[in-house]
């Protein structure tokens, strides 16, 4: 973000008794770190769980395909 747009953003927010240039960036940094971590964790949980489910379904399908033959052997 450029200095000018940062200044105009700070101008819109309450000036916090002249400390706005310190207060708002502090909250912004906290929000950035926490939201970033949350999104990254959400995405990797979704992706990994989906991939694990796909792999398990593939294996289940593969073992279902081999099962009848084994059952036939047994009988």
């Amino acid at each position: 973000m450029s200095d000018a747009s940062l200044d105009s953003l700070l101008a819109v927010l309450p000036d916090m008794g002249g400390y706005g240039a310190y207060v708002w960036p502090a909250f912004a940094i906290a929000a950035l770190v926490l939201i970033g971590l949350l999104v990254q964790s959400l995405v990797s949980a979704r992706r990994n769980e989906a991939e694990a489910a796909t792999l398990r379904a593939e294996r289940a399908a593969a073992s279902a395909a081999t099962e009848p033959r084994e059952a036939g052997h047994g009988a």
């Binding site: 964790s41 990797s44 990994n48 769980e49 694990a52 792999l55």
Partner: peptide, 17 residues
């Protein structure tokens, strides 16, 4: 919890592979 779920799933993927 989210990160632990992601890691458990990652280990499952490794084990299945």
């Amino acid at each position: 919890i989210l990160r632990m779920r992601a890691e458990i799933a990652a280990r499952r993927i490794r084990a299945l592979r």
